[in-house]
């Protein structure tokens, strides 16, 4: 395993879809290569930050328009 081959396998490594042999080989490389370790750690962090980000509340106007559209379709005001 080297830096180039790690990138080829990185997608499956991040998604935990590698067999144990390949996974171990990557982890051995990561223990030696500071650059690749930082790439993996900061990429995991990137995914985590986006995944954990909460969607902003809808504006009142947007909620009202959604409400009106649903009333028309569903036939009665939302609770």
């Amino acid at each position: 395993m080297n830096c180039k081959t790690l990138v080829v396998e990185l997608e499956d490594y991040l998604d935990e879809e590698l067999d144990s042999e390949l996974r171990t080989s990557i982890e051995v490389h990561l223990a030696k290569c500071k650059n690749c370790k930082l790439i993996v750690d900061t990429t995991k962090k990137t995914i985590q930050i986006f995944c954990n980000s909460e969607p902003a509340p809808l504006s009142e106007d947007t909620r009202h328009r959604l409400h009106d559209a649903l009333v028309k379709k569903l036939g009665r005001p939302r609770a």
């Binding site: 499956d12 991040l14 935990e16 879809e17 995914i47 985590q48 995944c51 954990n52 909460e54």
Partner: peptide
Amino acid sequence: MSTPKMNATGEKSPQTRAPLPSQV
């Protein structure tokens, strides 16, 4: 074909992501 990493509730493994309560 790869296997999706989902647990019984359909959420991803918590190793790389920790879902907020609203995401569960």
